[in-house]
């Protein structure tokens, strides 16, 4: 792929939900969504709550199925790809910092953060060193590193999630409210991490309710309200 091609490109994407337990009602939540994100660019999805920001992001990550259209990430159409192709894409190319930390209980925080690096075959010591560096930057006390994050506070879990998401230098990053529930100092660290990712050429798509943060790191905003299906004419 050439440098001018976007890393994320959606064209004419529609999304419907079929509610089988409600008589098979089909609800269309998005129609003809098109947008693209280039390497080194950060694009914010905006729109009222329920407008479809998370839905769109999930279609990019591949845990929501698009009803129609193309969702091309680094050359792979996620809407059509086989599971193992999406798994490889997620391992090598596309990271996702969600609002929830989902981990195997009992696994130490340091391992949780290093895991994406180990999954791409990074040397164990190098992976752990990178994890220590990120946890230090995100002000997670060293006394917590050997504990499972499942017992941590909301803000600490959020920072562990961010450390994990930034451990491997993914060329594509999806960020769902990365600065929510963070204090000023940690918010600053996260924004710096985002700027560093942009500088190394990552394409970033994010949801930011924090307007000042959005203005600082995002190059463009896309209002997903424009992708809402028209009411029956």
């Amino acid at each position: 792929m050439t440098g001018v091609e976007p890393m994320i490109a959606l064209s004419d994407v529609s999304k419907t939900f079929t509610l089988h337990n409600q008589g098979g009602a089909v609800i269309e939540v998005m129609r003809n969504a098109s947008l693209s994100v280039a390497g080194g660019e950060c694009v914010a999805l905006v729109g009222a709550s329920g407008a479809g920001k998370s839905t769109l992001m999930r279609m990019v990550y591949g845990n929501y199925l698009a009803a129609k259209g193309k969702v091309v990430v680094a050359g792979l159409d996620v809407a059509q790809a086989a599971p193992r192709e999406i798994l490889a894409l997620r391992r090598e190319v596309m990271g996702y910092v969600s609002q929830f930390l989902r981990v195997v209980p009992r696994v130490p925080t340091l391992e949780v953060v290093a895991e994406p690096l180990l999954a791409v075959g990074e040397d164990r010591e190098a992976a752990l060193a990178r994890a220590r560096d990120l946890l230090t930057r995100l002000n997670i006390p060293q006394t917590l590193w050997s504990l499972s994050p499942t017992t941590f506070s909301g803000g600490e879990q959020q920072r562990v999630n961010i450390a994990r998401g930034f451990a491997h230098p993914y060329p594509v990053l999806l960020l769902d409210e990365p600065t929510a529930s963070l204090d000023a100092a940690n918010r600053e660290v996260v924004l710096t991490l985002i700027e560093e990712a942009k500088d190394r050429g990552a394409a970033i798509m994010g949801i930011f309710h924090d307007e000042a943060a959005r203005d600082r790191v995002c190059d463009r905003v896309v209002d997903v309200t424009g992708f809402a299906p028209r009411q029956a004419a």
Partner: peptide, 17 residues
């Protein structure tokens, strides 16, 4: 399908249930 896709966006009536 992918585990998180099947659990987050189940398509079949039985999976939804």
């Amino acid at each position: 399908g992918l585990t998180d896709q099947v659990l987050d966006d189940p398509q079949h009536a039985y999976t939804q249930l």
